[in-house]
Design a protein around this nucleic acid. Structure first.
Lengths: 350, 350
DNA sequence: TCCGATTGTCGAAGCGTTTCGACTAACCGG
DNA sequence: CCGGTTAGTCGAAACGCTTCGACAATCGGA
């Protein structure tokens, strides 16, 4: 509750001197500084954030816009937020989380034009995202997590989907798998321009082509049921599949369930790799899933650090990709036999 | 960027008049109001949050303190945050999420004494929580999600664990189950004074006693492995168990895996009920889990609403409990036979 | 008809900082 | 010993809003 005035009076200096001690913008003699600091300590002084914000036109708050779907967010997104908050806190900033999605642009405009935030980080960026243009028009510094289609002059951090897919495919092919099915998000999600779904799709095609293999791809709704249906469809398209690469964290358990129902054992009959998955989720399955672990916390930290650099002018555009790390657990193993020509196209063991 | 001065000049009134139009604290003639509103519209005026905050000594920001563990948070906590953010937004407030745990009280004190937040809601409240006393000393309005041991003069919202456990037990007993094992959090978590673990434990004992049944309880580490170990222990203590009631969302998949390994089918041999679980997680299992669905979003909303009422003086202490709702899915069914004495203590079907 | 209350508006004084211009000493090289 | 820096400090003016006290005009009883 003590103000600068109180500190100044107790230290027998002017308020401006106190301010200079605090901000270091002008030289202060050691004696004076000591008196001021002592006064601050005895009064338990804390600068008032509002007053400071008004005078400097900087709130030292950055916003994190995270659309919250009804299905909540997984460990990946949580790690992201944690990393972002930690980075902000380290720099003496606060992080405001706003559950503002692509829908309510008005909310966003209000938040931004009230000058309550110095800059924002956007999560769940769509390939064509109205929030980006809205913020740019308002002149709000921003960094994306994810990418829009046109990244010119934009700062972003994102998962390196291309390398991640490549590593996953390398892992499976290295184990001898040839018939690999890729289970993506739903057709609707892809059509809506969800970047990760689009990018992994393209990368999968490219990676498979690099090995001269045919890329089989199936969309799946974001649910266990969607996973089951997708696997059924996959077995129709490629009855002799030996590996599944799943992008869809929500469908993965359905995939496993359907495999189990159909008598295909994991990993002996079918190897499964889950993409962009947190260890916690991977451990829930039995056997635990070999997965590409997303660099959630690191992404969050990088995003906020880039934003802060942009704010204080020590850095402009920042574009960075981070791959997911392959963590081999129990759901992948070498393919049963290289000579699986024996079974032709039929089911193994009828 | 337009300020009140600009609006006032354009509308040919004084700044105070503009302010009154905005806040409604004094009567304004319709003609004047119209002129002012029009000026605001043409200038695209937005009040500056900092200036307003400085003048009113209210930031219109409420904090949500959510300790973020490395294991991230589940759909329940996410729903909670969403509900809280929505409630804040509806009332024209912003929600600052701070990942401040029971550890860093200094961070907390700084946040609070900078007067950046008008009040705070605390998640993951421990039975004995230093944050509570710290905030009370600073005179910061606060509401808990969860409860400390002494709730005198405290506002809180929490899950009605007693009723939730009772309903779960009722459901199982109604299906004919008598040998019910309760899988709780780990011994360490219980010892640390984690409220939900303590309260459900007591409620389980009471509920079982109400039916004249013996309450068997097993602690489990928060992991799949913990669940497997717990189930093994449970089968040792009660080989003839027919139902498991699990409080531990992280252990549940381990429990299911171990049941499967031991040849006990769910739900035919063993019924399973998961407590305080979100539908999304319940659907991941196969069969989908009968669960007590936590009222996450509602809790968040109630907490923030109570806090805001406290802030504008239209409400003081607020204490409220909400039960989880029983959602019957595929993991529970009537007990195999009332005459299960046939099988003695051995495994059914050898 | 006069008085008290009400309505509508204004000017000015804060709110707690930062920052600019100015001023005093002390200091340095010539 | 003098003009020009430089270090150290102060007072005052912002920053953009709210709110208090004042005042004129209108109104409704007695």
């Amino acid at each position: 509750m003590a103000t600068m005035h109180d500190v100044a009076r107790l230290a027998r200096v002017s308020v401006s001197t106190v301010s200079y001690v605090l901000t270091g913008t002008r030289p202060i003699s050691d004696a004076t500084r000591a008196r001021v600091l002592e006064a601050m300590a005895t009064l338990d002084y804390q600068p008032n954030a509002m007053a400071r914000g008004l005078a400097t036109r900087r709130s030292r708050i950055v916003g994190l816009l995270m659309p919250m779907s009804e299905r909540g967010f997984g460990a990946t997104e949580t790690a992201f937020v944690t990393g972002a908050a930690a980075a902000a806190s380290d720099a003496g900033y606060h992080l405001v989380l706003s559950p503002i999605g692509a829908g309510d642009l008005d909310d966003l405009r209000r938040l931004a034009s009230q000058r309550m935030v110095d800059g924002v980080a956007l999560m769940e960026v769509q390939v064509d995202d109205g929030r980006v243009t809205a913020l740019q028009e308002l002149g709000v510094p921003l960094v994306l997590i994810g990418r829009t289609s046109d990244t010119t002059d934009m700062s972003y951090v994102d998962i390196d989907f291309d390398q991640t897919v490549r590593e996953a495919v390398d892992h499976l092919v290295g184990l001898g798998h040839q018939k690999i099915v890729y289970v993506n998000h739903s057709a609707a999600t892809i059509a809506a321009g969800y970047g990760p779904a689009l990018r992994t799709r393209d990368s999968f095609v490219a990676a498979m082509a690099g090995y001269g293999l045919e890329p089989v791809m199936i969309p799946a709704d974001d649910s266990a049921a969607g996973g089951r249906a997708a696997l059924a469809e996959a077995l129709g398209k490629a009855p002799d599949l030996t590996a599944v690469l799943a992008m869809n964290e929500n469908a993965i358990f359905g995939i496993l369930a359907e495999l189990s129902v159909r008598g295909r054992r994991v990993p002996h009959d079918v190897s499964v790799v889950s993409m962009v998955t947190s260890p916690a989720v991977a451990e829930l399955a039995h056997p635990a899933l070999t997965a590409m672990t997303s660099p959630g916390a690191a992404l969050g930290r990088l995003a906020v650090e880039a934003l802060l650099r942009q704010l204080d002018g020590t850095g402009a555009q920042h574009q960075q990709l981070l791959p997911c790390a392959l963590e081999v657990r129990g759901s992948t193993c070498p393919v049963a036999r290289p000579k699986n020509e024996l079974t032709g196209t039929g089911l193994p063991g009828g």
